[in-house]
C-alpha cells in the first residue's frame, strides 16, 4: 500500500497538469507528451535524464537518513554549493593539473566541504539546541553568496571577458563522458554505490535501526539509550556528504567550471525526492528519475512551447501536495460519524 501513494500522486499531478495546460490554451495531450515523453525519445535525452537524476538520487539518499530520525536538513543546496566550490578549488589550483590523483582529491574535498557545511548546524543542534531547519537554510544563502563572491572576485577567470565564472577545470579534473556525444559520465556509479550504502544502512544495520526509532518514537529511543545527538550528527553528516559529493560531480561533470548558478535547485528538489521515495533507497531511485523528468520536461516545453520553466517548481509542489494527501487515504480509514444528537435520540427512543 505504501507504493500506492506515489503512483496515485503522480497520476493526480498529471491530471492537474493537463487541466493547467488546457487553461493556458495548450492542447493537454501533446503538451504532456512534450513534457514527459519527448525528453526521453533520444539517446541524448536518456543520457540527460540519468545525468540529472544522479545528483537528485544521491542527495536524497543522504537526506533521507536524517529525515528518518526527524533531522530536518533542508540546506542540501548550500552543502552542494560548498562541495562544488571546494572540488573546483582543488581542480583549479592543485600544483600538478595532470595528476591522476586530481579527481579523487576533488572527491574528498567536495565531500569534506559538504560535511563541514552541515557540521555547523549539527553542532548547533546537538550542543546548542538550535533549530536545524533554519540554520541549514540560512547557511544555504550564505553559501550562494560565497560562490558569487568567488566567481565575481578572486576566482574569476582573467581570460573570461569579465564574465563571472572561473577558468575551465583541467582535463584530469573532469569525469570523461562515456561517449563524447553525450554528457553522461561515470560519476553515476557514485550514486549507484550511495543507493546501496543507504539500503545497507537503513535496512541492514543496527545504527540505521536506532536512527529510525529516534524518528518514529523519540521517547522510546531515549528510554533505550539511543543518543539524540548521535542521530543529529549522523543525519546531517550523511546529507552533507551526499550533497557535497553531488556538487563535486556536477562541477567535474556537466559544468566544468564555476558560475553564480551551478544548481537548478537540486538540493531542494532532493527533499521532495526523499519523500516520494518514502525515505527508502529504491523508492528514492524511482523518485529521482521522476523528478529528473520534471526538470527535463520543464526545460523542453520552455524551448518548444515557450512555457516558463517555473512550471517545474509548480509541478514539484503539486506532486508533494498530492503525495502527502494520498498518504492520508492509505494510512487512515474514513468513517462518516453521525452528529451526536442522533445517537441521543436513539437512546431515548
Amino acid at each position: 500500500m505504501r507504493v500506492a501513494a506515489p503512483v496515485l500522486a503522480s497520476v493526480l499531478t498529471l491530471v492537474v497538469g493537463s487541466i493547467f495546460f488546457a487553461s493556458l490554451g495548450h492542447d493537454p495531450l501533446p503538451t504532456l507528451y512534450a513534457f514527459f515523453v519527448e525528453p526521453l525519445n533520444s539517446l541524448n535525452g536518456l543520457s540527460e535524464w540519468l545525468l540529472k537524476a544522479s545528483p537528485l538520487i544521491l542527495i536524497a539518499c543522504g537526506l533521507a537518513i536524517g529525515f528518518r530520525a526527524n533531522v530536518w536538513n533542508i540546506g542540501a543546496e548550500g552543502q552542494f554549493t560548498m562541495g562544488a566550490i571546494a572540488a573546483s578549488g582543488v581542480g583549479l589550483f592543485w600544483p600538478n593539473p595532470d595528476s591522476v590523483l586530481l579527481l579523487p582529491l576533488m572527491f574528498v574535498a567536495g565531500m569534506g566541504a559538504g560535511m563541514a557545511w552541515a557540521a555547523i548546524p549539527a553542532f548547533l543542534r546537538a550542543r546548542m539546541n538550535t533549530n536545524e531547519i533554519l540554520v541549514t537554510l540560512m547557511m544555504t544563502y550564505i553559501a550562494t553568496l560565497f560562490l558569487s563572491y568567488l566567481v565575481h572576485g578572486p576566482w574569476r577567470d582573467p581570460a573570461g571577458f569579465n564574465y563571472p565564472q572561473t577558468a575551465l577545470l583541467p582535463t584530469a579534473a573532469l569525469f570523461e563522458s562515456f561517449d563524447p556525444a553525450y554528457r553522461l559520465n561515470p560519476s553515476i556509479f557514485i550514486t549507484v554505490v550511495a543507493v546501496f550504502v543507504m539500503w545497507l544502512f537503513t535496512d541492514r544495520s543496527f545504527l540505521g535501526y536506532k536512527m529510525s526509532v529516534s524518528g518514529a518514537a523519540p521517547l522510546a529511543a531515549r528510554y533505550a539509550g539511543f543518543r539524540e545527538s548521535a542521530a543529529v550528527w549522523i543525519g546531517l553528516m550523511a546529507g552533507g556528504a551526499a550533497a557535497g559529493i553531488a556538487g563535486m560531480a556536477e562541477a567535474a561533470g556537466p559544468l566544468g567550471q564555476l558560475s553564480p548558478q551551478i544548481s537548478p535547485g537540486y538540493g531542494f528538489a532532493a527533499i521532495i525526492v526523499a519523500f516520494i521515495g518514502r525515505l527508502n533507497a529504491f523508492g528514492i531511485v524511482l523518485g529521482g528519475l521522476l523528478m529528473s523528468l520534471l526538470f527535463l520536461g520543464g526545460e523542453g516545453v520552455q524551448m518548444t512551447l515557450g512555457l516558463p520553466s517555473a512550471l517545474t517548481r509548480i509541478f514539484q509542489g503539486i506532486l508533494l501536495f498530492f503525495l502527502l494527501a494520498a498518504d492520508f487515504f492509505i494510512f487512515y480509514r474514513i468513517r462518516l460519524i453521525r452528529p451526536a444528537r442522533d445517537t441521543h435520540a436513539l437512546e431515548t427512543a
Partner: peptide, 16 residues
C-alpha cells in the same frame, strides 16, 4: 513536509 511543499509551490506559482 506540507510547509516545505508550500514554499516550493509558492515560489513556482509566483514566478509563473
Amino acid at each position: 513536509a506540507a510547509g516545505l511543499a508550500l514554499a516550493i509551490f509558492g515560489s513556482g506559482v509566483s514566478a509563473f
